[in-house]
Write a protein that binds this DNA or RNA. Sequence first.
DNA 1: TGTCCACGTCT
DNA 2: AAGACGTGGAC
Length: 315
Amino acid sequence: MPWRAAPGSFSDPYHVWLSEIMLQQTVVATVRPYYAKFLAAYPAIANLAAASVEEVCGHWAGLGYYARARNLHKCARAVAILGDFPRDIAGLRELPGIGPYTANAIGAIAFGLPVLPVDGNIERVAARIFAITTPIPAGKPAIAAAAQAFMADKAAQAAPGDFAQALFDLGATICTPKSPNCLICPWNKHCLAFAQGIAASLPARTKKAERPHRIGTAYALMDADENILLIRRPPRGLLGGMLALPDTPPVAAKWQDAGSIEHVFTHFSLTLNVLVARHKTLPPGALSGPAATASLPSVMRKALDAARRALNHGS
DNA sequence: TGTCCACGTCT
DNA sequence: AAGACGTGGAC
């Protein structure tokens, strides 16, 4: 990983923090190009603090969970005021967007504090080693508590950051969610789930409630130069602070059907009907143009693509 | 195709 | 303290 330091050495706290925020609920392959883009745009956390929140959200577009981008910016400004990252868990926890996991990740990896950041990987390893069958999420606290026993290990104490990252790797490559490679696992002699032949079934999960379906409308108003009218959504809630197509008609116009797109969010799936219209000029102050459309959340990019297809066919 | 997975934080 | 919050890849 580009954000990792050589074994035995500490990583730059800025790099650890930036990568860990991006890695929340997001896989490494997705994060990689965003991490590179952010470091190019903001070589130091001071550059991030000096940027506008709109610009930061724009760079974040497509990565999802946009509260992370807003908190990233807030956190950068808080760190700018403090002068540097706090070097203790309690201090890190007070920063926006940093919860128990991320505080421990920064503490262990950047500062060598003897703490264990229990992510999904380490949770899975712990559930198996100790054969904890309580389903997640109810069983989460018990699994995290059991995982703390790992820190009794001398190697863990000596290099908490390397230890945590080694466990991440164990979970990602050997102790995988499905078909774990127990036969080559360095810990298989100590694994209760392996001994009982139940490793693949752990951690158990409570069946999720069915995802509701919603229907919405997006309005794409395009001028002669192919600019599309965009709005900025309110700073909280769904796609908070992000650019979007309006969900109510921005002007009186001859709206035409451009088909629909499907999108799945965490807590609902969405059919978005897209309507399009041509207009000579966009309202003054409209956000538009190629730079703006590059900064759209994925659902809005899908809608915009549908709108453009319809307009190009119709003309 | 659809289900699961990415434990993470905030309110 | 239960629910809100995105997206894409693996299988």
